[in-house]
């Protein structure tokens, strides 16, 4: 019995979830449309005065990215929980953390990556300078996976609970604040010309990404075992 290698298993789970996401393409776009809509609401609320919008842009985009990924996290485990496939995954002879990491990566590719790709377009809406847009996109690229991973812990903890979606955000948002701070801080630093501060913000984001990559799958697997009991 040739057990799949860790890498093959990871790819299997990621491909499985992406295949499922593609079969229900609407879900992919709801997250994206939600993100664009939330971002576009702000100029309507705040007024179109360019100087103010440029200053607010990183905060608005990052908070919208945070909310958009919270929105789709509820389905990370619940779809598999309902039809019993999650049980089978927990019985797989490989470590559950790898499977959970795979699901987190797939969730990021469906709900995090599109936000990163579309961020420059929205950056124009806020008249961001090109370097600022670059740093914003890079920050989102480093930060959104962390949102999916920390959110994965929340999704596992609130599995099968009524009011899961709101409860999930309530648990996870405080934990995502550092990511929000470093992500927006980098853009703020570049537009204020403080290049070293920008680099250190991005470095901290990258550090949080590595930290989450190592820890969150295991914690999320423990949370799943607790929830499935």
């Amino acid at each position: 019995m040739n057990t799949l290698s860790v890498w093959q298993l990871l790819v299997l789970v990621v491909r499985r979830d992406l295949l499922l996401a593609m079969r229900r393409r609407a879900d992919v776009f709801t997250t994206l449309i939600f993100f664009v809509m939330v971002v576009s609401l702000f100029p309507l609320g705040v007024g179109s005065e360019m100087e103010l919008l440029r200053k607010m842009a990183p905060g608005v985009l990052w908070v919208a990215a945070l909310l958009a990924s919270m929105l789709s996290l509820g389905r990370l485990f619940s779809a598999d929980y309902v039809d019993g496939t999650l049980e089978q995954m927990m019985l797989a002879p490989q470590s559950l953390s790898i499977l959970v990491l795979g699901k987190m990566i797939a969730h990021w590719m469906v709900s995090g990556l599109p936000l990163v790709l579309i961020a420059p377009v929205l950056g124009i809406q806020f008249d961001l300078s090109v370097p600022a847009q670059g740093v914003l996109v890079l920050g989102l690229l480093l930060g959104t996976p962390v949102l999916s991973m920390i959110g994965g812990i929340g999704a596992a903890l609130t599995l099968g609970l009524r009011g899961g979606g709101v409860l999930l955000s309530l648990l996870v948002l405080p934990l995502c604040i550092p990511v929000l701070i470093f992500g927006t801080g980098a853009v703020y630093a570049i537009s204020a010309g403080l290049n070293e501060a920008m680099v250190s913000n991005l470095a901290l984001l990258a550090a949080m990404l590595m930290f989450s990559l190592v820890l969150t799958p295991w914690v999320s697997a423990q949370a799943l075992r607790i929830s499935m009991e």
Partner: peptide, 26 residues
């Protein structure tokens, strides 16, 4: 479940404090 959240939270408390301090000085 709440215990796991508390442990994850307590790991994050210092991170949150320093990131807020960093954000504040910025």
């Amino acid at each position: 479940a709440a215990a796991l959240l508390a442990v994850v939270g307590s790991v994050n408390v210092p991170i949150i404090y320093f990131s807020v301090k960093w954000w504040n000085t910025l």
